[in-house]
Design a protein around this nucleic acid. Structure first.
Lengths: 145, 145
DNA sequence: ATAATATAGTTGATGTCGTCAACTAAGTTT
DNA sequence: AAACTTAGTTGACGACATCAACTATATTAT
């Protein structure tokens, strides 16, 4: 095993904690939990996602996903729309408030990252980005577990 | 703003999700949640941590921290020991089962990372490690929020 | 065509979890 | 030694995700 792997694991775990539900977004913007924000974010990124697609993207059961969309709907961030193609499917669509909020949170978090990295030279920042791309691509390939 | 910052934020957020409570460790090794594992891990790393220290390291209230230690104790992974120096303080100490389990989970997760990165050249792996160090140091400096 | 089956989503019951506020117990200060 | 501070615990509560059973729509087989 490459000698850096254990360090890499520990670093990822700590970073993840800081950006996880106990970190940045535990109760971030008003009334959105991290889970709700993530659901909103992926629905925003790829419009017309079904409830189950959101569930499997975030690793929730379809029942859990349905509850998440309930909350987003009750709080006015998204609405369910029946698919015209398949009447069983619900498409999750962001409201204006939803779009506004998701972009606001992303801006806030991006600003946090900017502040984090403000003293680094541009080429270092670029290296950080490349490293993260490598990690995210690898982890996507490998999937959950 | 450096043009890579928004990408970096998105990449961190995705990586964090994958290693967060809905990813790797949601219900990982038997009966430990990610929160419990993290508490066990930091108690193991710096032996003789008080309940509140664990709470503030993980961003829980002292009450929440106390419940986490309750669960670890009930499941046999740790015990409370009164501090000999200050009778109010409880030191969290791992049992043999606790130490065994935390190292087992770390090994498992390290193996996962190894598998993730198995096709990369050693110098790339080193770069990934450096990038993560930069990120973790920055985020430590900045603290929660 | 129609009956059987499969799939998407919802919902009541349930258990887990973290917080708040009030509390106990142990130190510290005056 | 009285007043205050600090560490930790606990009952009540609300938020949340899951399971299993359910409805409704779509697909397949006969």
């Amino acid at each position: 095993m490459n000698k850096y792997i254990p360090d890499i694991y520990n670093l990822i775990q700590e970073l993840s904690w800081r950006f996880g539900s106990r970190g940045l977004d535990g109760e971030c913007c008003g009334d959105l939990s991290l889970v709700e924000y993530m659901a909103l974010k992926i629905a925003w990124e790829s419009e017309e996602l079904s409830i189950q697609e959101i569930g499997s993207a975030l690793n929730f059961t379809k029942s859990g996903a349905s509850r998440i969309i309930d909350r987003l709907e009750n709080k006015g961030y998204a609405v369910r729309k029946r698919s015209p193609v398949d009447g069983r499917v619900c498409c999750v669509v962001l409201t204006a408030k939803g779009t506004e909020t998701v972009t606001k949170i992303m801006k806030r978090n991006t600003a946090y990252v900017e502040e984090m990295l403000k003293d680094l030279k541009p080429e270092v920042v670029k290296n950080v980005k490349s490293a993260l791309e490598i990690l995210v691509n690898s982890v996507r390939r490998q999937g959950f577990i």
